[in-house]
Design a protein around this nucleic acid. Structure first.
Lengths: 146, 146
DNA sequence: TTACATGTAATTAAAATGATTACAAGTAAA
DNA sequence: TTTACTTGTAATCATTTTAATTACATGTAA
């Protein structure tokens, strides 16, 4: 199955906070850009806020980035929005038969291997910052406006 | 969300085919080791068979590996059991607002980035073979029998 | 022919997602 | 202090996926 789009929405939100300075960023405005319901945005915003990535105040429209663009990696966002529990990208069948040579060892064997794969994924995400995403979006804008 | 345990079950099955040569491998026997229903095993076996990893014949108990242990990588299993569609490990929100600078570019920007991360994951899986897993299981067996 | 196996479809309960509605509580300006 | 608007958050809902289960047609070998 796929990793929840909360992640891509999170990246969308953070990019939007940087790129479009012309409007006050209410959850409704952001929802208009993402094309979803404001309550969905508020929930994700709450997660980003918890992770220290954005500043939002109850009752006040106008979310802002809480860090520099180049200090927020996609891994930060990924962890913030909780799309994958710690070390649980892969689920492993539980209760394999302990009376079987394979059954009683498979978990202990496979979990570290899967963990390495998961780390490789996360490493790749940590190599990209919101600054990179913003830059990329701006380049595409230029190219298309010609 | 997590990647289906079909994957870890697939690895379990292939390891079992190699390690335990004492019994004929019916879906029922394998199900006993994995601790699930035989029909689940048969479904996964069908996928492994489709991918050319095992030999099974309708009506005949006794599945076998179709390749050398060290020629089957975890990536092969991962792809065989179809836990993640091609390039869809991450789902990306669709229909972002085309009238927004971010909305109209976010997908094109983010998809290649996520694809790189997914490739990193798959690369890590391709570095491990069933032979490695089997060896690891056997080592754990020895250690525990002392 | 008998006994048992695989292949496969249908059904089910549980869990997660994303959308939606609703409303309490916070804030700022008139 | 009232008004208008916003965030925070809970509850509900349809949809989708998983894994388990049941059932049975079909294949195979003794």
């Amino acid at each position: 199955m796929s990793i929840s789009s909360r992640f891509s929405v999170g990246v969308h939100i953070l990019s939007l906070l940087e790129i479009d300075k012309s409007e006050t960023k209410s959850s409704e405005f952001i929802a208009g850009s993402v094309n979803t319901n404001p309550a969905v945005i508020r929930k994700i915003m709450g997660m980003l806020k918890n992770a220290g990535l954005v500043n939002v105040r109850p009752g006040v429209a106008g979310a802002e980035l809480a860090k520099n663009l180049n200090e927020i990696t996609l891994l930060d966002v990924y962890k913030a929005v909780n799309v994958v529990q710690e070390n649980e990208l892969f689920s492993v069948h539980d209760h394999p038969n302990p009376e079987c040579r394979v059954g009683r060892n498979i978990q202990e064997t496979i979990i570290p291997i899967l963990s390495i794969a998961q780390s490789a994924l996360e490493k790749a995400l940590s190599n990209v910052t919101i600054a990179d995403v913003v830059k990329d979006i701006e380049e595409k804008e230029k190219r298309n406006s010609k």
